[in-house]
Write a protein that binds this DNA or RNA. Structure first.
Lengths: 218, 218
DNA sequence: TATATTTGTGACTGCTTAGTCATATTATGC
DNA sequence: GCATAATATGACTAAGCAGTCACAAATATA
């Protein structure tokens, strides 16, 4: 966690530093990201970073947690209960995700790139934890839907929960493979991941829902 | 591609070198893998590697291609046509994959770890190419099944193909998340990825098929 | 204003890496 | 056996990195 020194830093400077590191970690993997580069660009001393954070991983984790919290303010603003069925809620999650992306492009890019950090031993645990959290969340929803008699009950909840999680990541992955989005370029241009791609995103979401609905519904 | 020097090397020495690098790349990501470490373990000079290969990427690509060819001898030994339906073929692919793993543990581990190399800019293109190849393969099968009137035709082939591809990777990923397999440990112990996990694997495959069948079948 | 505390600094350490190249060793052809 | 070609070698280069620390500057306290 960051030191008091960092937290006392003053809005302006703190944001400037945070954003520089967000950008670095959004462009590079954890291991490739260079603190030396960032401080050079920021025009501050290397040692300062180590007055603000324990080490590279501490800084990285801080960014993960703050970004996560920001995103949670969006996707956590609604509950599954308020929707006619699970799929309406599932769909809404992507709309909120789009909104988060549009209003917090840097944080969105950072979280996007996070998915590519599975490998680094240093952040592997952190990533696994985040994934498990998400998978468990979907698992709970699946259990709820089964309870309500809306989802089939002849398969392990874990399988269905994991599948839902994977559907979410597949959607963004497919858009990338099919060159609809290009995070590498859009971060350079300082624009959101899904800039101008709202329709394409939601169309893809709808396609995926249409596809997998029969797999889950009773 | 490797030099003649490498190809002329003699079965024994060539295999020893190949296997040492396969192991290194099976344990570490491309960037983390250290040629210096491997040559030290092998007891050969660093310079020798550069008589065999252009550079690190050349060596890596050679390993990808040879492993791919070995695996293709398994999964390519059957055609979708010979099966009563697509899902029987899909299931068979995993049986053949298991067999490949059991008989070529090192190559299997290497290919397994490949999935974790999406990030490295150096191998990104190579990985994308392999993925696209696989996705296109599934796309073709989807198109065929639609032609035969067995798959639904109200969704883009690309979406359905990509989903099938993702189902395949999700199966192995879920087994890993649920600690059924542990590549990191099994490579250390010199045993196949799915050692003693045939039943669990096929059960998971069956579960996934059972789950997603209604999503694809007409 | 003088002293104490907090914050900022950047040269430096120690480490690792891919890749090179002049030299030594081994194999081949005559 | 000798000369030529092919192969093996490992110290070396240049570059990168995270993290440190003695010192300087700024700020707070008295």
């Amino acid at each position: 966690m960051p030191s008091n020194t960092f937290l006392k830093l003053g809005e302006e400077k703190r944001k400037r530093i945070e954003e520089a590191f967000l950008r670095e970690f959004a462009v590079n993997s954890y291991d490739e990201a260079s603190l030396s580069d960032v401080v050079k660009k920021l025009g501050i001393a290397k040692g300062s970073i180590y007055q603000y954070f324990e080490d590279k991983l501490d800084l990285f984790m801080y960014l993960v947690h703050t970004c996560n919290q920001v995103k949670l303010r969006y996707v956590g603003s609604v509950a599954a209960k308020g929707f006619p069925d699970f799929w309406a809620y599932f769909r809404k999650l992507f709309e909120l995700g789009y909104q988060f992306d549009a209003e917090n492009p840097l944080q969105s890019h950072f979280l996007h790139n996070l998915v590519r950090n599975v490998n680094s031993p240093s952040v592997r645990d952190l990533y696994d934890e985040l994934m498990l959290q998400s998978v468990r969340g979907f698992g709970k929803m699946v259990a709820m839907e089964i309870e309500l008699g809306r989802f089939r009950d002849d398969l392990p909840v874990s399988t269905m929960g994991f599948m839902l999680f994977r559907i979410g990541t597949s959607i963004q992955e497919q858009l990338e493979v099919e060159k609809e989005i290009n995070p590498g370029k859009s971060i350079e241009d300082n624009v959101p991941v899904y800039q101008g791609k709202r329709e394409v995103l939601m169309q893809t979401v709808d396609n995926y829902i249409k596809l997998v609905r029969p797999a889950f519904d009773k």
